[in-house]
Amino acid sequence: MSQFIFLMNNFLRKQNFWFVFTPYFWLVLFFFIPLALIFKISISVSEWGMPPYRDFIDFSDGGIKINSTLSNYAFIFSDSFYLRSFLNSLSLAFTSTLICLFIGYPIAFYVAKSKENIRNLLLILLIIPFWTSFLLRVYAWKVILQGSGIINVILMKLGFINEPISMLYNHYTVILGVVYTYLPFMILPLYGYLVKFDLNLIDASNDLGAKPLKTFIRVILPLSLPGIIAGSMLVFIPVVGEFVIPELLGGSDKLYFGKIIWDEFFVNRDWPIASALAMSGILILVIPIIIFQLMFAKYNFKNE
């Protein structure tokens, strides 16, 4: 018997190696290597050709010459145009994360507290939009909001307005599109935490004299904080780089960071500048997030 346990242990230990390292191989292959490539391009010199930058290591003169420059970074930080677009993206991400949180929290709470059969139905309803292409769903908003769209038609039929109001192509429609698209990413992690929430804790808090609002602040909110953080990250981070929604629904009133990178890449064909922008964006976002995560690590508790 002890022999068997020993062999099992050994086997599991070997298994463990793959369990632990498979995600790391994945990360290296699909995250760090591409990131390193982007970094390489970002310190390369722009050139007319294919690829549109000079090789990082140049053997052409018989010797080894390293072509690297920080001028791309210097350029994007010297032009406030890029900084403004980044701030626009940050404010878009911040606003839409807040709106997603305020809309998503009650929905997640309601779903988590529904009876099991209703809960599963509601979860399916939350996930169903993913079955349609995200592009189509954003495009649908164009149809809904346009001059001859359903909202304008109804408002005119009811006599509230005489002629169609233009609702498209401003930063409000961008926020609408972003909130609509990213709402499930807020709801699902929140739901994951709230569904584990023991309803007796609400009763206990009430019983100890805490009114409903106090119960929410003192018990429900702190216990769902990890869900709030996870959901907010899932919305905030991709929205900073979002370029499809501003492209489809946005106007010229605000330029967003993701769109700028897209334009540098595909319109200006300036890969080094685009890469430098992408790298800067990552660094500016990642460093505060790491600090934030470390700060909240101590809030992590076992919810048993």
Binding site: L201, D203, D207, F301
Partner: peptide, 15 residues
């Protein structure tokens, strides 16, 4: 209510 209840699973606040 001027009364309190002790719950079956205690319902202590884990945080």
């Amino acid at each position: 209510r001027p009364l309190n209840m002790m719950f079956q699973n205690y319902a202590l606040f884990p945080h």
